[in-house]
Every structure is written in structure tokens, then in C-alpha cells.
Simulated assay, not measured.
Amino acid sequence: MGKNFIGLDTEKTVQLADSLNDLLSNYQIFYMNVRGYHWNIKGDNFFELHVKFEELYDDLLLKIDEIAERVLTLGHRPAHAYSTYIEKSEVQEKKDVSDGLEAMENIVESFAKLIGKQRDLLSLASDSDDEGTAALMSDYISQQEKTVWMYRSYLGH
């Protein structure tokens, strides 16, 4: 087994990069969904949710860039076509959502999918001695668990 330029097993980096690209696809669809919620939200909670959705999509955009750069750091190419994102993503594209509660439910469901994928990636990264990916996934999971708790509280769950 050979090592790549940052000292990781080259075969394991293929698996890590594939998993990161899968995660990237889910993040990209989630990001576009949240942009749509931000643009189309209507109703009593417009002002509160409009701002909240902007905060969320700004955070998602940062994570998208970090994930793509991690793929590059591992020596691979990040997925960069929406056709790929739609094909790979378990987060489903949502169109024309203007109801705040529906948007929030979709966000909580999307986070559940992301957190599950990130837990799997954390395990794979740890088994591959890939501290960089493991640390990134650990940070995302801890942040998003708190976010899900707050969004679920908003929904009365």
C-alpha cells in the first residue's frame, strides 16, 4: 500500500474522496433548497425565517467549500456539476416551498441525512488515520446537532 503526498494510504483516499463527494452533492442540493426557502418564504414568520435561512445558507456555502478543498487535499477532484449532485444526493430537491413550517421540516430532515453521512465519514476517516477529515466531520456534527435541536424546538418537537 502506497502513501500519497500527505502520508495517507492512496487506496483509502479514493474511498474518502468518494464519500466526501457524496457529502458534497448532498450539501449542494440542501444549499439550493435553503436559498429557495429564503427567497420564497411568506407568512407571519417571514422576517425571522428570512434571516435564519440566510444564516443557514451562508454556513452551508462555507462547508461546501471546505468539503471540496478537503477532496483536493486528499489528491482527488471534487464533484462540480449539478447533474452529479442531483444523481448522488439523498437530500431531495424542493421547489416552490413558501410555508415556513414545511421549510423547517425539510431542513431538519436534510440535516438528519447529512449528520448520518458525516458520522460514517468520521468513522472511515478515523480508520484511515485521516485526522483532517475526521476533525472536519466532528466539527460539523457537533454544530449541526445543536442546530437540529433548536429547529426541532421551533417546530414544537
Score class of each variant (00 low, 15 high):
36 G>F: 01
100 G>M: 04
104 M>R: 13
18 D>I: 07
138 S>T: 13
82 Y>R: 08
155 L>Y: 02
65 D>H: 00
65 D>I: 03
118 Q>T: 05
114 L>H: 00
119 R>G: 05
14 V>M: 05
151 Y>E: 07
114 L>Q: 02
39 W>F: 12
99 D>T: 07
93 E>A: 13
74 L>H: 05
70 R>L: 10
13 T>R: 03
78 P>W: 02
9 D>A: 02
21 N>H: 10
19 S>A: 15
28 Q>D: 10
117 K>A: 14
23 L>E: 13
21 N>R: 06
25 S>P: 00
50 H>K: 09
78 P>L: 03
69 E>T: 00
22 D>S: 14
6 I>Y: 03
135 A>C: 09
129 D>S: 12
16 L>T: 07
77 R>M: 15
4 N>G: 13
114 L>A: 04
55 E>W: 01
41 I>A: 06
59 D>V: 12
78 P>R: 06
64 I>C: 02
96 D>W: 09
108 V>E: 03
119 R>K: 14
73 T>I: 06
93 E>N: 12
141 I>Y: 03
147 T>F: 07
83 S>D: 01
123 S>E: 14
5 F>V: 06
49 L>K: 02
60 L>G: 03
101 L>A: 14
109 E>D: 15
9 D>V: 10
12 K>V: 09
100 G>N: 04
138 S>K: 12
118 Q>I: 10
100 G>A: 03
119 R>M: 08
144 Q>R: 11
54 E>S: 04
113 K>D: 09
125 A>Y: 01
116 G>F: 10
117 K>H: 11
125 A>L: 05
112 A>V: 14
108 V>L: 04
100 G>K: 07
132 G>P: 02
22 D>G: 08
136 L>T: 03
85 Y>E: 09
144 Q>M: 15
92 Q>N: 13
61 L>H: 06
132 G>R: 00
72 L>H: 08
67 I>K: 06
54 E>C: 02
87 E>H: 01
16 L>G: 05
21 N>K: 08
77 R>L: 15
125 A>C: 08
8 L>F: 06
5 F>S: 15
55 E>Y: 06
57 Y>W: 03
36 G>M: 00
82 Y>G: 05
86 I>K: 07
6 I>C: 08
57 Y>H: 11
56 L>E: 13
47 F>D: 00
75 G>E: 08
9 D>K: 00
148 V>Q: 11
13 T>G: 06
76 H>I: 09
44 D>M: 15
39 W>H: 08
152 R>G: 04
53 F>W: 01
35 R>F: 05
45 N>Q: 15
23 L>M: 11
144 Q>F: 10
41 I>M: 11
60 L>M: 01
134 A>Y: 09
11 E>R: 08
138 S>Q: 13
77 R>P: 12
24 L>I: 13
33 N>K: 14
31 Y>F: 07
146 K>M: 05
36 G>C: 04
51 V>G: 13
132 G>C: 07
